[in-house]
Write a protein that binds this DNA or RNA. Structure first.
Length: 718
DNA sequence: GTGCGACGATTTTAG
DNA sequence: ATCGTCGCAC
């Protein structure tokens, strides 16, 4: 068979990676070096040249989008229907395994996936049930605690703590939460992985089975794996099968959510793979690449990699120092207008920023100029309240024992079931190991609640019962539509929200019914014995959908640097390049976190194909007060010969880009100081030099003050 | 059960 | 500034 088409379009290192004959492979793939292509061609190569059955390949990604793209590419390249292929996210694949072995891991076959919002509500519920103070145990923090430990593979028993310590109390909440999940057949995201890990760890036969079945395992974005995911990979790798791992330590930007860059070097240590470096970049101009390389060079402990291109030098990177965040936005929008006037598309432009709050000024400016735009971030389709409300009804129709769903809609729309009544139901459920639905039914039957409460509860129980009975065999869309209509959700939103909000909600509900109507159950779900409803519910949790609707319009893209990873744009703006914002204040102290910010900067810069603008503002409003900041240190790491200063000699000049102002008495902007009366604060402005210098300090408790340095008696630190 | 004012937090986020 | 949550009054 002629397989030259699999190699034709590849460069030497890509070809080498694709064709490695034995052993494990680690591909260090720089930004824009064609890693997806390598992964896809590798799979095709294995199938066509080594005659590996498509069924014995396992390809793992981090996002559904990436999985979908990979699936599409492989299908196209091999001209086969990609349905049977095991390509998916860690969570998707673990979910599939758990469905197939639910009994073995002690889960009911109707088990439901909790998304983060469900999980949060449940944790809050547990804290209240335990009669603990939510101020002392903030649910968000506890959620972080639980997920963190699960991501590290720890059950409550595996967490060390002293009796009666704060830690011990957190562990107690974790334990209680886990009990609750078990009783109601609920599984959170981390649990999907942890259960699968335990299944493979504790069951030799199963482990061996999957090790033999998946002769080749391919993993994308390896720098994003957490402890649990790496442990899972290690369990899946047996003596026979082979791992093909692709990653870029320079693009690791998710350390804060548990990702371990070290996994890349640990993989090198643990598996002695053949290492292939992809360093030729097909995306950016030489200038942009060179600048990005020089910035990332400031990080220690890199695996070492230097991107190069055969492309043109291109235009210099343009720097702009604005007086204010407003002026910065105006500048950016004016450049976007130029771009569009030159006949380019708005969709080729991305404005990248560090934090979501920054989007507002750009939105306002774009709106003013009538340029269409799209903001990434915010709630996704299946995360919207009205969609989750309707889905809770569907969940109850699927499994009346789904307590999370019960809690959500037992009194939504309000039908006279108050906190007292629900508390009664919860107590009864807990005491008798029943689900909330069962407990409610028992209490009603036994006349164990007030007549009024019992009547209200009866209405709800009957509603769910009827819906379940009537739509046992209905199509998904029909069942969902019936639930929405019978529960009168629309009227509920209309009665208590402004018309435009209510209208948006009812549009989303209509969209939900349409989505359910056109839902095509994945072949593998059907094989795993899932009902269409179960499939739909799982998908809703596992892929929460798009952020916004009109995605095909030609519009400017506004997003955080994080969400830009993996994307590319001809024209990129990186805005708000200021100390304290980027690198973020909370990351400046620790070297490790600062290095991650620098990688984020590297990721941002390497999104740009042709032109890159980097802007910063002297003053901007943050948390309701205007602050002064100096340019980000990352700007100083870009060689001057690669840049063009669009506004030289402004106020930023004495503070020349990136260079810190000459210290007045050793003090610099951004430095922490302590004052005997005002406490500790941050230096936000310095005027003059020597003992007569005046210094503005933003004190934590006393607010912002101007002080004469000679009399201020400031101590460093604080 | 609902509405409103006080209070506090506020980096990044896929599944 | 702005948004979400909580507690209290009606």
């Amino acid at each position: 068979m002629d397989v030259s088409h699999l190699l034709d379009e590849l460069n030497d290192p890509q070809r080498e990676a694709v064709t490695v004959d034995d052993g494990h492979v680690l591909v260090l793939a720089g930004a824009g070096s064609g890693k997806t292509r390598v992964l896809v061609h590798r799979m095709a190569w294995l199938i066509q040249v080594h005659h590996v059955s498509p069924m014995s390949l396992l390809a793992v990604t981090f996002t559904n989008k990436a999985a979908g793209e990979m699936r599409g590419c492989v299908g196209q390249l091999l001209n086969l229907r990609p349905e049977g292929l095991w390509i998916g996210t860690f969570h998707g694949i673990c979910h599939r395994l758990l469905r197939m072995h639910s009994a073995e891991v002690g889960l009911p076959d109707t088990f439901q996936i909790l998304d983060s919002d469900d999980q949060y509500r449940l944790i809050r519920r547990v804290i209240r049930d335990m009669e603990l103070d939510e101020g002392e145990f903030p649910p968000r923090q506890i959620q972080g605690f639980i997920n963190h430990h699960k991501d590290e593979g720890r059950r409550p028993d595996g967490i060390e703590c002293f009796d009666h310590s704060f830690q011990a109390q957190q562990v107690a909440i974790y334990r209680q939460y886990q009990d609750y999940c078990e009783r109601s057949g609920l599984v959170d995201f981390a649990e999907l992985l942890l259960r699968t890990l335990e299944l493979l760890r504790d069951n030799d036969a199963r482990r061996t089975h999957y090790q033999e079945r998946f002769s080749h395992i391919l993993i994308d974005e390896f720098q994003d794996t957490n402890t649990l995911q790496y442990a899972l990979v290690r369990l899946l790798s047996g003596p026979q099968n082979r791992l093909f791992v692709v990653g870029d330590d320079d693009q690791s930007i998710y350390g804060w959510r548990g990702a371990k860059v070290e996994n890349v070097s640990h993989f090198d240590r643990d598996f002695s793979p053949q290492v292939v470096r992809l360093e030729q970049n097909y995306r950016s101009t030489e200038t942009i690449l060179e600048a990005a390389n020089r910035v990332i060079d400031h990080n220690a402990e890199r695996m070492g990699k230097n991107l190069w291109t055969e492309g043109d030098r291109g235009e210099p990177i343009r720097l702009f120092a604005a007086w204010s965040a407003e002026e910065e936005a105006e500048f950016v929008i004016a450049r976007i207008q130029d771009w569009i006037e030159q006949g380019n598309k708005a969709s080729e432009v991305a404005v990248l920023y560090r934090s979501n709050a920054q989007s507002r000024l750009f939105e306002q400016a774009l709106l003013r100029e009538d340029i269409p735009y799209r903001v990434y971030g915010g709630l996704r389709f299946f995360e919207r309240a009205e969609v989750k409300d309707a889905m809770a009804y569907l969940r109850l129709m699927h499994n009346v024992n789904d307590d999370a769903a019960f809690e959500r809609v037992v009194n939504l729309p309000a039908r006279g079931i108050g906190q007292r009544t629900v508390a009664l139901v919860r107590d009864h459920a807990r005491a008798n190991a029943l689900s909330l639905f069962q407990a409610a039914r028992e209490l009603v039957e036994r006349n164990a609640m007030s007549a009024r409460a019992a009547n209200a509860m009866r209405v709800f129980l009957t509603l769910i019962h009827e819906l379940t009975e009537t739509h046992r065999d209905s199509d998904l869309g029909e069942a969902l539509d019936a639930a929405i209509k019978r529960a009168e959700l629309q009227a509920w939103y209309e009665s208590r929200e402004p018309p435009d909000r209510a209208e948006a909600r009812s549009e989303n509900l209509a969209e939900l019914v349409r989505a359910a109507d056109s839902f095509d159950q994945p072949f593998e779900d059907e094989q795993a014995g899932l009902s269409p409803t179960a499939s739909f519910l799982a998908q809703a949790a596992l892929e929460a959908g798009e952020h916004q609707g009109e995605r095909w319009e030609d519009c400017v893209q506004l997003m955080t640097l994080h969400s830009a990873k993996g994307l590319e744009f001809p024209l990129v703006f990186m805005a708000g390049m200021e100390e304290g914002l980027f690198p973020h204040q909370k990351s400046i102290e620790e070297p490790g976190r600062l290095a991650e910010e620098r990688r984020l900067c590297y990721v941002g810069m390497t999104r740009a194909m042709q032109q890159l603008y980097i802007t910063h503002a002297e003053s901007r409003m943050l948390h309701g007060q205007t602050g002064i900041s100096r340019p980000s240190r990352f700007l100083a790491e870009i060689p001057a010969e690669l840049t063009e200063d669009l506004r030289p000699g402004t106020k930023a000049a004495p503070t020349a880009v990136g260079r810190a102002p000459e210290p007045a008495d050793g003090l610099r902007l951004g430095e922490r100081v302590r004052h005997t009366r005002f406490g500790s604060g941050t230096v936000i402005n310095i005027e003059g030099q020597g003992p007569n210098a005046r210094i503005q300090v933003n004190f934590e408790s006393a607010g912002s003050k101007w002080l004469v340095l000679a009399y201020a008696n400031l101590e460093p630190g604080g």
